[in-house]
Amino acid sequence: MKESATSIASAAITIFLTGCIIIAHDVSTGFRQSLAALTGHHWISVSVVAIVLFVLSLVLLLGSKNARKSLKVYDIKLWSTALMAVTLIMILGILAVLIARYLAD
């Protein structure tokens, strides 16, 4: 299967964008409030955003041959490594922001 890494690439993109949103909402109170206003709770909003981003990126990659080619979606090893790296970086980033905020308070 040439492009079996499509969903792994979508997951890596989703986790990167969701991670950035999480860090931004931990840093900015205004952004957190706007996320909370979206669904009633910031956690639900982040969950919904993650689902939407995953589905969107998956549909985009499945629908566009050029996007798959330019992102090298056929390389499953590359994307599984990227998924692992992005996830670990985002976990560390979120923890670092929360620890810094706790120590500052």
Binding site: S7, I8, A11, T14, I15, T18, V46, T87
Partner: peptide, 10 residues
């Protein structure tokens, strides 16, 4: 939130 995304990708 990252976990279900990884599980679905797998």
């Amino acid at each position: 939130v990252f976990l279900p995304i990884i599980a679905f990708a797998l």
